[in-house]
Each structure stands twice: as structure tokens, then as C-alpha cells.
């Protein structure tokens, strides 16, 4: 195995693991999958991860031909599809002993798949929040209010994100807008108006970073686990700030 070939493998695995980490896959799965692809190609893979960067070493088994690099982890939207597809790719590479060229080609086709339509996501997130409202005891009026309030908040989030506004600010503004719109339910004197208010911001809850943080810590990736939990905590604080602003305006208290 030449140095050039090891470098090519390292190039590919660097891309592979940065896409997976960026798309919100938990660390042990990324490490496991990268090592599996390495096994398929006859190299040892060692990975060290942190929140923003990862260090990767690819070495030919039993020989001192290696390549080490530090790579940035891009911020992709959370993608369960990439998670599933890229994990399946690692198994396919291992089981069928696929050559590097074929793995690269399949990887490129998987990550080039079209994204979800933003209107579709907007409507589904709004429906999901309205359903949460129902689960927490809201009536149909509260569900409708939650639906449209979520739609406004989520659209604000999509729009500000597209404009590359700092994402903590995006969370504060979106939580404020959604909760303020939901608070209009109070004017109707509904029993479940407060349920509408509370559930209107649930679409912002960073569930994936929270779960990944816990999984990472239990799997021994303490550093990145804590980073992810702190990141999720910051987002929750932002939601709380946005919602508190609404409550202070509307009810003059936080309770």
C-alpha cells in the first residue's frame, strides 16, 4: 500500500466522519463506522473527536505507512437519513469488501440526495407541535393556535437561519415569536390557553444533541458528550429567554 493510497483513504474517511458528526450522529457510531470502513480497506483508523474538530489517523495494518490530520466538523442540519444511509454504507463496504472508488461513488450519491422541502418541514413541524398540544390536554382551539404559532416561529427560524444569523439569536427570536403568537389564545379565555403557550416552542427543543450527549458520555466520549450537552443547554436557555420575554410581556410574571 503506497503513502498516496493511504492518504486517499484518509481523505475519504475524513469526509465520511465529518459528514456524520456534522449531521448529528453520536460519536461511538461514527468511530465504529469509520473503523469498519478502514477494516474493509485494510487500514487501522483512530479518531479523536471534539465539538468542532476531529483528529484522524489512518495507518496501514502492520506497516508504518500512515496519514494524520485535524479536520473541521461542518454544521449540517440534523439528518437521520444520512445517519442510516452512511451507516449502511460502512456495512456494505465491509461485507462486500468494496474498493475505495466504489465506496466514494456511493458516498457521493448518498450525500447528494435532495433535501427535505422546507414547506413540507414547516407544515410537519407545525402539525407535530399541535399534536403535542393535544397530548398535553389542549382542545381543538388550542391545537389550531399552536399550529399557526409554530408555523410563524418555525418560518422565522428558517428565514433567519438562511440569512446566517447567529443561531442562539435565532432560537431566542423564534421562541419569542412563537410563544407570543400562542399567547393570543389567552384572549379567548380558553382553559387550555396555557397549554398552547407552553407547547408552541417545543419544536425548538434540541432533542438530538441532548440524547447524543448522554450516549457519548455513557460510551466514554466524555469531552464531546459534555460539549454537546452544554450546547443543548445553551439552546434551552435561549428558548427560556424567548419564552420569558413573552411571559413578562403578557402575564407580568414567569409563572
Amino acid at each position: 500500500m503506497t503513502q498516496e493510497y493511504v492518504t486517499r483513504i484518509a481523505d475519504f474517511i475524513a469526509r465520511y466522519l465529518s459528514y456524520m458528526l456534522g449531521a448529528g450522529v453520536h460519536t461511538s457510531r461514527v468511530v465504529r463506522n469509520s473503523k469498519r470502513i478502514g477494516d474493509a480497506l485494510g487500514v487501522d483508523v483512530s479518531v479523536h473527536t471534539s465539538q468542532k474538530t476531529a483528529t484522524l489517523t489512518v495507518a496501514e495494518k502492520g506497516r508504518p505507512v500512515m496519514n494524520t490530520r485535524v479536520l473541521d466538523i461542518p454544521a449540517f442540519p440534523i439528518s437521520f437519513e444520512w445517519n442510516a444511509d452512511l451507516s449502511a454504507l460502512s456495512w456494505a463496504a465491509y461485507d462486500r469488501k468494496m474498493p475505495l472508488e466504489e465506496i466514494e461513488a456511493r458516498f457521493d450519491s448518498l450525500v447528494a440526495k435532495p433535501r427535505m422541502n422546507p414547506v413540507f418541514v414547516l407544515l410537519m413541524a407545525s402539525l407535530a407541535n399541535a399534536s403535542f398540544c393535544r397530548l398535553f390536554g389542549g382542545d381543538i382551539w388550542a391545537m389550531l393556535v399552536t399550529f399557526t404559532a409554530t408555523m410563524i416561529g418555525f418560518f422565522t427560524r428558517q428565514h433567519l437561519t438562511r440569512r446566517h444569523v447567529n443561531h442562539y439569536i435565532v432560537f431566542v427570536v423564534s421562541a419569542f415569536v412563537a410563544s407570543l403568537c400562542a399567547s393570543t389564545a389567552l384572549t379567548l379565555g380558553l382553559d387550555s390557553a396555557e397549554i398552547a403557550l407552553a407547547t408552541s416552542v417545543l419544536y425548538l427543543v434540541p432533542g438530538v444533541p441532548l440524547i447524543n450527549g448522554v450516549i457519548d458520555i455513557t460510551d466514554g466520549h466524555i469531552q464531546i458528550g459534555i460539549s454537546r450537552l452544554v450546547n443543548a443547554l445553551m439552546l434551552i436557555v435561549c428558548i427560556a429567554i424567548g419564552m420569558s420575554a413573552t411571559l413578562m410581556l403578557v402575564k407580568d410574571s414567569l409563572l
Binding site: 422541502n117 422546507p118 407544515l123 381543538i140
Partner: peptide, 30 residues
């Protein structure tokens, strides 16, 4: 929006229609 997304435009428009009908039904029922 000419960007290629999934699901197809027809499917998204069908969802929009379904949502509009659903909201209308909720309003009428109440």
C-alpha cells in the same frame, strides 16, 4: 422554488391541501 427537494412538489401540494381541509374541518366542527 426551483431547487430539487423531496418529497415531490405534487406530494407537498397534496399535504398543503390536506392541512387546509383539516383546519377547515376543525373550524366547522367547533
Amino acid at each position: 422554488d426551483r431547487t430539487e427537494y423531496k418529497p415531490s412538489r405534487t406530494a407537498v401540494k397534496a399535504l398543503v391541501l390536506a392541512v387546509a381541509v383539516l383546519i377547515g374541518t376543525c373550524m366547522v366542527v367547533e
